[in-house]
Design a protein around this nucleic acid. Structure first.
Lengths: 136, 136
DNA sequence: CGCGGATTGCTATAGGCAACAACATTCTCT
DNA sequence: AGAGAATGTTGTTGCCTATAGCAATCCGCG
């Protein structure tokens, strides 16, 4: 079978991202978390009191799409929202949220380590800077 | 704003793939093609007569999800299907499909070139092998 | 001080993509 | 011939994202 797509870095990028995403999603499912949930928890943990809008900007998610995400996290008692002014509310982790977040950290750290281990050593150091150049 | 996600290659991989995917999708939209369509056209062009199942395996798409994709391509008169035996049908490009495919090739080649140009030169050669190690 | 524009949070709706289960038909191999 | 595999298809579900629009609130400039 001829594979005309093999030589395209863009195609490999998509395939690699899909494969890694699927694996991480599977690992996070054990914690009842989606990837977006875990990212949100970690960013909130590092920036307590931030607004939903700021979180959306940070994660490059549309404001509209934060709503179900945050509702889900609040529903699960992982985050709380307290009024900053009339319209904004600050986000913070509950204690359950902090526990869940450290658990997620462990899962993600293990995942990242496994992922990096799969890359031939001479290429490893180049991956992050190359990827960052594509979107930062 | 502290960004605890910055140090994770896996996160960068996801973000980079999303960014590149969005850009390619936008460029292909000018041809009325989705990414999956373009991939399918290129693989069929390189392997005329292949079956839908073989294409699904090649692209790592579930058999079931090939149906709407191929129907769309056939609807647009880009591919044809001719019976191989009682149950299998071989896929081939129509002449419009061949034109569309070469047009897609141009778009993708330009896209890949632009993408690679954004990567600092000392990292470029390492990207493809590193990515391939993650999914091949 | 007040007003206009920007920001915030939210609803509703849609599309792209992929996963899964199930099914009938047909092929292939022993 | 019969068992098991492959093929094409349907229907359903889930996740993620995008867009448009709305009401409430905030803020800076005149």
């Amino acid at each position: 079978m001829r594979d005309p797509l093999a030589r395209y870095p863009g195609y490999s990028l998509r395939r690699a991202a899909n494969a890694m995403s699927a694996e991480l999603a599977a690992r996070l499912a054990a914690l009842d978390l989606r990837q977006a949930d875990a990212s949100a928890l970690m960013v909130i943990a590092a920036n307590p009191g931030m607004t939903a809008s700021a979180l959306a900007r940070q994660l490059d998610i549309q404001r509209a799409n934060m709503v179900p995400l945050l509702n889900r996290l609040e529903e699960a008692d992982l985050i709380g929202r307290s009024p900053i002014d009339g319209k904004s509310r600050g986000l913070e982790l509950t204690s359950a949220g902090r526990e869940k977040c450290t658990a997620a950290q462990s899962v993600i750290d293990a995942f990242e380590a496994d992922m990096i281990a799969r890359i031939p050593e001479q290429h490893r150091a180049h991956l992050l800077p190359a990827l960052d150049a594509l979107w930062r």
